[in-house]
Design a protein around this nucleic acid. Sequence first.
DNA 1: CTTCGATGGTTTCAAAATGAAACCAATCGG
DNA 2: CCGATTGGTTTCATTTTGAAACCATCGAAG
Lengths: 149, 149
Amino acid sequence: MGDAGAERDWTDPACPVARAVDLVGDRWSLLIVRDAMEGPASFTGLRRSLGIARNILSDRLRRLVDQGILSTGPSGGGKRHVYELTGAGKDLFTAVVALRQWGERHAFADGEPHSRLVDAEGRPVAELRPQGQDGALLDSDTTRVERVE
Amino acid sequence: MGDAGAERDWTDPACPVARAVDLVGDRWSLLIVRDAMEGPASFTGLRRSLGIARNILSDRLRRLVDQGILSTGPSGGGKRHVYELTGAGKDLFTAVVALRQWGERHAFADGEPHSRLVDAEGRPVAELRPQGQDGALLDSDTTRVERVE
DNA sequence: CTTCGATGGTTTCAAAATGAAACCAATCGG
DNA sequence: CCGATTGGTTTCATTTTGAAACCATCGAAG
């Protein structure tokens, strides 16, 4: 991956979780990415969908492009208009799905309606489950963080 | 789930991703949860580990307890000291793992060292991969969000 | 070619969140 | 009883966010 952005001084330099949070863990970035998952997005499209302030959206888009998560490449004419996910951006799919599934399980009252993620045939996506290399299911009690020296 | 917290007016009420971000999508909450995954956590332990300001940590802990993600239950004596994950909190494991794996893939230069998540035998956790009910691998191109009316 | 509306911003300023530091009460070890 | 540690709260400065106004460009309609 191209080392595009200049973040420097991470909250916790050795922890991939902390770096991910530093990059996309604010109020808006992941929602912009969520929207961009549905296809190329425009400034006003995002604005309407999210209800975000213009200046903040402008800043977040610039930052996401700098970080290599979005591109506004010359696709379309080069006039800096359409935003789409890069490889790194698309790769956030799994994390967005994980947050979605957690939200479905814990952020809605019983019977409260919510959007769903489905495959091309309309069937819901299976629940993500962390496993070991041997296929055994894992959780926070059966794993540990191996700190790096 | 007990409707403990009072969040009200969500950024995007029907979207589980947005609700999850509203609940834990700030600079610190997920890192607090990450730390709590390793076992019961104390105020000063978290402070030292994260380098977070006292008042902010105090606020986040209160909020996470209100939201039913952490408990500071009477376990230990009832004197409001130890914080541990509730069921909903432990269930964030998958999302934290997904962010960790994304961070490992995209937030480190080649060869730059980082902590790893391993199982009880020290073997790395397998990469999470969204699948359909039939086991087919899915990504943002082969899924769509079914909006709720 | 002119005008009009929409798009994609930037600037300015007020309000809210964050952080550093000082302060404080309760507990614990000796 | 003494001093250190823990678990905070309060105060105040700094930073971030957001609403609103402003502005430049483009394409379509007249």
